[in-house]
Design a protein around this nucleic acid. Sequence first.
DNA 1: CTGGGGACGGGGCCC
DNA 2: TGGGCCCCGTCCCCA
Length: 440
Amino acid sequence: MEISSHQFHLLQQLNEQRRQDLFCDCSILVEGKVFKAHRNVLFASSGYFKMLLSQSSKETSQPTTATFQAFSPDTFTVILDFVYSGKLSLTGQNVIEVMSAASYLQMTDVISVCKTFIKSSLDISEKEKDRYFSLSDKDVNSNGVDRSSLYSAGWRAESSPPHSHLNPEQGTCMMGGSVWSNFSYYPASQRNAHLSKHENRQDSVKKSRHLGLQQPPDIPHYKSSKLEDRASEPPGHSAQSEEQVQIEAEVESPHVGYQYGQGSDFFLNSFLTDDLPRMRFKCPFCTHVVKRKADLKRHLRCHTGERPYPCEACGKRFSRLDHLSSHFRTIHQACKPICRKCKRHVTELTGQVVQEGTRRYRLCNECLAEAGIDSIRIDLDTEAPLEFPQEGDKDSRWHYGEDNKSDVEIVEDGSTDLVIQQVDDSEDEAEEKEVKPNIR
DNA sequence: CTGGGGACGGGGCCC
DNA sequence: TGGGCCCCGTCCCCA
């Protein structure tokens, strides 16, 4: 016989012990703030801790200490609360950093919940856009209190997968439903904590020009992981003040009578705007505005860190197909008609393609001879140019040539052997004519 | 310290 | 309207 409440009570007890610092055998230091926890709980929740603790347990029986600079204490609080309660307190503000931290800590459940949160937020934004034009303020506004979205990914969601369940006790939102009115309010100083430098740079320029506003310098800075670095807010970099956000909301959404309360403008700013008729889609995570939905979708990947386009030649992943294709052309197809060594222009006659692992580049005959790699034999019968997947071939594997297109997977072997390949430059010649100075 | 290469994000155009 | 492609500017890394 199984008592379903047992797991819940057990975790509740552990959480209580953590709060009272009872039996805690692990200290986690996040930007100077110390979190106490139980090794076994961390071990069971995170791939990162699993590795860390399994190593440290071999070495010593002393209490373990882990230090992180990759995310903020606030973010780790959300993560740790989730670990000990199964409830993930996501907001539009913290979702990016929580996802980044979860990625760092190898907590796949949390990552998928974050992704779902983001996707749903966007769906809702789109739906709300429709509602925006059809509903009155009264219809959509509830009470305006701070209502963080609270996901329960625990065993209380027995009938639902973690990412689709919201704790009903919190009276919060329904994922996938049509109502999404509970985004928590954050001070504007934190609001843009995840803006990319680039966006901030551009946005601050745009805003200053548009509204004549100064950017306040006092922005909290959260050190982030590599992934998040580009999307994090550097100190002094353009966060808007609360007032500014409000002004911006008013300027960009001049339809009065549409407010969800203080914090709700966060996602709703992705609405169509009247004063910017050509700039229609606003990013829910930053102040960036784009003309097309497709552009917004593309832009959002810089927040979500999603990289759906893997290079099957080297395994590197890209957020955009064009970046992938550009990478592939540059790195694996040796499209540049330039000798990598002497930088001289090479043709079919004056140079050859050299393969180094999965990398390909061109060397002129002189540099080839100089490097003494002209004696390496290659079997031209089995060598064929690397091919980039064609349209509609997104999911297929990449391949060497036509003949073995379906089965051959290219794996980076780390080999430093150089292979020289005689190539037909006819295509490259054609391409050459179109080469512009900035094409690499 | 500097320059080059590669990655990446934004914008625009074409189909 | 969306996807693909190209151009441009910027950042980061490395030699």
